[in-house]
Design a protein around this nucleic acid. Structure first.
Lengths: 222, 222
DNA sequence: TAAAAACCATATAAATTCTATGGTTTTTAT
DNA sequence: ATAAAAACCATAGAATTTATATGGTTTTTA
């Protein structure tokens, strides 16, 4: 019988083992699943590269949060996804994430455009099996919470440029406005002015930054 | 038993009758479906308005193509959706469309933000029932072909302004460049210049309009 | 093979957005 | 409570972008 090879990457071994037991024991039409696992960015890149030289993985299941043994720049599952698209373009990529926030999903949809996105609280035996079938036959597969974020994004036409997005992001992580000049190539009044414009755009004129953050979150930007 | 009231709008009576027979005969958990039908924009608005005065419809199933008996400006299902959001904000709206093209789906997602979108070739008994349950309990519900268009849109960051979109739209329906000045508030060289920019943006420099149309379609703009 | 449309280039005008600067108000920490 | 920090606001001028007007060349179409 045909074999579908899957690599599951998660720094919690229990999680990948769960996927492995469920999917290797499942009855699919016309194939069996054989699953490898990896616990770190480094291990995962190695396996993906190795496989790509011969028969690439059919599916990659990637967690977003990954522990980083080396002390270089922290690598996330998103980076792993970008890497995998490069070296193993025929593999389907599915994110298995604890995050259902808009910022994360938007970012991953743009950087990786995965064949699937599952929010972990929504994963069970049935949805895992459905995901494998859908991803192989007619992607994409998104769980309900991912769809909600995606819908929010689609419903709204406002397009922000890179600087706007950076400002909102830094606001959301608590960066002080006067410190943003270090990260954004604009003058301080330039940043202030854009914040004013954003507030006006979101209908929270004359309010403080918290109102802007809330509005941005509601609209799916952060 | 609780009743879920649905209005199905389609100018082909057979279609709405199909929905009616399937859903009124289905066993749902905790409710029964009762379906009304309408064949035109006018009939639909009347029914929606009427119902909204008392108990609004729980779900509206809207076709996009509607025949127009009166000879005023042609009204589409999209217009009907916008109208329904206005007068019956608690009703869930689901589009049942023959169109799976990106332009249509994008446009409807922005103008109406429906709780569901089904491409007609993908509708069957099972998906109809799933749609009703999902839309009532945890929207949204999109069929696979709709998801493909949505994914395409999400994956790409290029943001075009209104004029760009109008130019692409008019190109796609065959409007001559020199005639576009009638529809777009730009000078002819302005339009030409934007077309050049779009071609460059999509990587089809020095090619003709057909290449630009193809590229736009691939990227989900038209 | 004319005529029409598309395409291109450039000078100038208009609009937008930035910076620099200096001030006022609000928030924060002691 | 109050001093310091940060946020907020306004304006003049510089820089950038994008539009128009105009006139020409190439390609498409009837």
């Amino acid at each position: 019988m045909k074999k579908v090879r899957i690599l599951a990457v998660d720094d919690h071994e229990m999680t990948t083992l769960g996927y492995k037991f469920i999917l290797e024991d499942s009855d699919f039409e016309g194939f069996k699943v054989q699953m490898d696992t990896a616990k770190s960015y480094e291990e995962a890149t190695k396996r993906i590269e190795e496989a790509a030289k011969g028969i690439p993985y059919d599916i990659l299941l990637l967690d977003i949060q990954l522990s980083n043994p080396t002390d270089g720049p922290a690598k996330t599952g998103e980076d792993l996804g970008v890497f995998a698209r490069e070296v193993s373009p025929d593999s389907k990529i599915v994110f298995m994430s604890s995050f259902s926030d808009n910022y994360r999903i938007n970012s991953i949809m743009q950087a990786v455009d995965p064949e699937g996105y599952m929010v972990k609280t929504e994963i069970d035996q049935k949805s895992l099996q459905a995901m494998v079938n859908t991803v192989l036959n007619s992607p994409p597969y998104y769980t309900q919470k991912a769809l909600v974020a995606i819908r929010k994004k689609m419903a709204q036409d406002i397009s922000l440029d890179e600087n706007d997005k950076k400002i909102l992001y830094h606001l959301s992580i608590g960066t002080k406005t006067k410190d943003m000049v270090k990260f954004i190539s604009l003058s301080l009044p330039g940043i202030e002015n854009r914040k004013r414009q954003l507030k006006s755009l979101f209908g929270v004129e004359k309010q403080n930054d918290q109102a802007l953050i809330t509005a941005s979150r509601n609209r799916g930007f952060i």
